[in-house]
Amino acid sequence: MSRKPSFANLRDRAAPVAQIPPIASTEDKAPRPASREGRKQIAGFFTPDMSLAMHMMARRQGRSLQALMAEAFNDVLRKYGESPVGE
């Protein structure tokens, strides 16, 4: 039966140098889809129950989650006396 190799002999070896990939420039990025031009992302973290409820509501209404969120944001704006912005 063979013995397990000893890792003691690895102590004296130099650690390998990590290769850091070059940072991609803005020219390397894919163009933004036309549907996102002139728009800015708004994101949040919600409970799984809230996520499921919103996705199910969107499905039942035949609308996108983004459309429901735009409606909700406009309702909040109205509630606090601001003009709704639309989608």
Rank of each mutant, 00 (worst) to 15 (best):
R39I: 07
P33D: 04
V85T: 15
M50H: 11
R36D: 14
T47A: 02
R78V: 14
R60K: 15
A18D: 14
V17R: 12
Q66W: 06
R3I: 09
H55M: 06
I42W: 01
S51R: 14
E37L: 07
N74T: 06
P33W: 02
F46V: 10
K29F: 02
A43K: 06
H55L: 08
A34P: 11
G81F: 05
D49M: 08
D49T: 14
T26R: 03
A53G: 13
E27C: 01
S64A: 02
V76W: 02
A8T: 15
P5H: 00
R59L: 09
E71F: 01
A24M: 09
A58Y: 01
V17Q: 11
S64G: 02
T47N: 05
P84M: 10
L68Y: 03
H55I: 05
D12H: 12
K4R: 15
K40V: 07
L68P: 03
R78F: 08
S51A: 11
M54T: 08
Q19G: 11
I42A: 00
T26N: 09
G44W: 12
S51Q: 15
A30W: 05
R63E: 13
R3S: 12
P5G: 00
L52S: 10
Q41E: 10
E37N: 06
M54I: 11
G86S: 03
Q61H: 07
D49N: 14
K79E: 13
P48C: 00
P22Q: 12
I42L: 08
L77S: 04
F7T: 15
S2A: 01
A24H: 11
E37W: 07
A24Y: 09
G86D: 00
A18R: 12
V76A: 03
L77Q: 13
R78I: 09
A30T: 07
L65G: 05
R3K: 13
V76P: 01
P21D: 08
S35Q: 13
D28N: 04
A18K: 10
K29Q: 13
V76C: 06
A70W: 03
S25G: 10
F45A: 10
V85M: 13
P33S: 01
S64H: 02
V17S: 13
K29L: 06
A67F: 01
L68W: 00
F46T: 04
P31W: 00
L65I: 09
D49Y: 10
P31S: 02
L65F: 04
G44P: 05
D12L: 06
A43I: 06
I42D: 06
A70F: 00
K40R: 12
R32K: 14
I20N: 09
A58V: 06
M54Q: 10
D75S: 12
S83D: 15
R32D: 06
A14P: 15
E87P: 15
V85R: 14
A67G: 07
D28W: 05
F46E: 09
G38Y: 00
S6M: 06
S25I: 07
I42R: 09
S2Y: 11
L65N: 11
S64D: 03
R32H: 04
T26M: 04
E87Y: 12
P84F: 01
G44A: 10
F45T: 15
F73K: 04
P22F: 06
V85D: 04
A24C: 03
A30K: 11
A58D: 07
P48A: 00
R59T: 15
R13G: 03
Q66K: 06
M57G: 12
E87I: 08
A72K: 05
